[in-house]
């Protein structure tokens, strides 16, 4: 799959995450949601590479797709200032943009996105950061869930107050999406 096709796939996922409902708050939140989708078997994201970054798993390609969508006014970016963080970005979809209709997932993919959206509704971004980081360490290093969480907390002490929520979130995603992930073919078999 070409780099560009991968970027389009990443953008299509972003559009679906932002489509409908309230604006999505935060770049970190978007990054972690897309990472969780990939980790739970979204095949469309196979080529999107995540690396360990400041706030956990991060994809430069995804960040670029978001910048490009903001520049083309497909996605609207608003800035809000908070006391604890110097600024936060809020994202909403410009439904008038021709790409809003053009970039569509199939029904099975939409279902997966909607499940993730409902399971993560109301989550603090720190909770997502911790959950995504633990999952990243679990997958990359073959750690158990508890060891991965412990390691993630040592790397991210600021997330400690969200430890229980992150653990519950991962358990709930395992229950809802884990079976799907297990049944998904590995990339090597595609």
């Amino acid at each position: 799959m070409s780099y560009h096709q991968t970027s389009i796939n990443a953008l299509t996922l972003l559009v679906e995450l932002i489509r409908g409902g309230q604006p999505v708050e935060g770049r970190v939140r978007l990054q972690k949601l897309v990472y969780l989708l990939k980790a739970y078997g979204m095949k469309r994201l196979t080529g999107v590479k995540f690396r360990y970054h400041h706030y956990g798993p991060y994809s430069e390609q995804l960040a670029g797709a978001l910048r490009s969508a903001v520049a083309s006014e497909l996605i609207q970016e608003d800035t809000e200032c908070f006391d604890d963080e110097w600024q936060k970005f809020c994202y909403s979809l410009n439904v008038e943009h021709p790409d809003a209709e053009y970039l569509q997932l199939n029904s099975e993919e939409v279902e997966l996105v909607n499940t993730l959206k409902s399971k993560t509704k109301g989550c603090h971004w720190r909770e997502l950061e911790l959950a995504a980081t633990a999952l990243f360490l679990e997958r990359e290093r073959g750690l158990s869930r508890s060891d991965a969480l412990e390691r993630a907390l040592s790397l991210k002490p600021a997330c400690r107050r969200y430890q229980d929520e992150a653990e519950q979130l991962l358990g709930s995603l395992d229950a809802a999406l884990g079976a799907r992930q297990r049944s998904a073919p590995s990339f090597a078999a595609l």
Binding site: H4, G26, R27, H54, E60, Q61, G64
Partner: peptide, 18 residues
């Protein structure tokens, strides 16, 4: 081929949210 700014290995300052 399509080229994208993110393919360049030298990173610009993008600042951040946090």
């Amino acid at each position: 081929m399509i080229d994208e700014p993110e393919r360049v290995s030298y990173k610009r300052y993008t600042g951040g949210e946090g």
